[in-house]
Computed example of a mutant assay.
Amino acid sequence: MAVLNEEQEMLRDMARDWATNESPVTEFRKVRASGEPHAYDKDAYATMAEMGWAGVIIPEDHGGSDFGFMSAGLVVEELGKTLTASPLAATTIAASAIVLGGSEEQKAKWLPRLASGETVATLAVDEGAHHDPSTIETSVSGGKLTGKKAFVHEAHGADLFVVAAKDGLYLVEKSDGVSLTTRKLTDQRSHADVSFDGAAADKLAGGGDSLLDDVLDRARVLTAAEMLGMAQQVFDTTLDYLKQRVQFNQVLATFQALQHRMADLFADLAQMRSAVEAGLQAVDGGFGVARAATIAKAEANRVMHKMANEGIQLHGGIGMTDEYDVGFYLKRARVLEASFGSSGYLKDRFAKLSSY
């Protein structure tokens, strides 16, 4: 496990207490039942912003705390444990794009609004069913952006889009020229195809040619952090169930075969944590980010997929009933596994990075 400083421990503990007491899975059920397109509790997100979580990676000069990605990952991990529906991760990823590539004017305009929770932002990159930033066709002419983005997270609640075009990243406000088509995915969160038809666009001119890759790597490690929290919760929930459930007049946890399966999952979880924390630390340290982020997301995909499947199977048929929470984690996991790179994509990327 990563060695945390006192501030990070306090931040993690605060996030854990709030998520456990104020945002358990029952709150996600309420959000789901509401049917609102933005699919999160706006009051809860305002509270997160008041606690400073929306500004963790934003410099102090622009209203943030500049605690870094490890700190942001700690918060997202705790929220992942309770499936808290919020645009925090999406906004943090978008904010990182502005921090890396924005002009002083762009930073002064947007970062304080993102840090305060006044503005919600998200990243819009992919244009097809699979993650592939090399096939972007969105273009900009005369300051107007035209194109279509698929499966954009938190699109309904977003006020600002960080959009990948052929020649870089652009800031596009939700206004004329921007339209959404809702996509209902299995996790019951906000996803949409977003069409841009001559929308006013402001280019992020800094950050160099690698800006998009740098932002995507940050998206990968933060997504992996959420999956780490989910995997930990599925493991803990499943272990508790095995200790309570009686079959053939014996507690399930006494069966050696099940003990072996849980031991394997425990080892996988430890390996996943190591990879995810290494990815977060690499972003903060600015060294070996591409490889570390690729490994973090690939390992998160592998372990979360296995953990979700085993959690369902070890619960038995009731695991997929709506009454039990464990099925929600599998559904969210399947969406996150495909986000910012499937396992196949990430393995291919790692091979290319290793050949340089």
Rank of each mutant, 00 (worst) to 15 (best):
A300G: 00
N309A: 13
S116G: 04
L171Y: 05
R29T: 03
S86W: 07
M230R: 14
A115S: 10
E173G: 07
G64R: 11
N5I: 02
L74R: 05
G327D: 02
I93R: 01
S141I: 05
P87A: 14
T92H: 05
H156Q: 07
M320A: 13
H156I: 01
A94E: 06
D197M: 13
V221F: 12
M307R: 00
A165C: 09
G285W: 04
E22D: 14
K166S: 11
H315W: 15
L258Q: 04
D348Q: 14
V303P: 02
A72S: 09
K243V: 05
G317E: 11
F255W: 11
G64Y: 10
R16I: 08
A270N: 10
T238E: 04
V246C: 02
G101W: 02
T223K: 10
M307A: 15
G157N: 04
A49C: 15
D17F: 15
F28H: 03
M272T: 02
R218D: 03
T186M: 13
Y40E: 00
M307C: 08
S343D: 13
D202N: 13
L79I: 04
D236R: 13
D193F: 12
D322I: 14
E154F: 10
D240R: 15
D13L: 10
P87G: 06
I98R: 07
L88M: 05
R29P: 00
V75W: 06
L160A: 07
Q232K: 15
M1R: 13
A192K: 10
G157P: 01
A290I: 03
P59I: 08
P87Q: 07
S190I: 02
K144R: 15
G177K: 10
G102P: 03
A115D: 03
T146N: 12
L79C: 12
D214G: 03
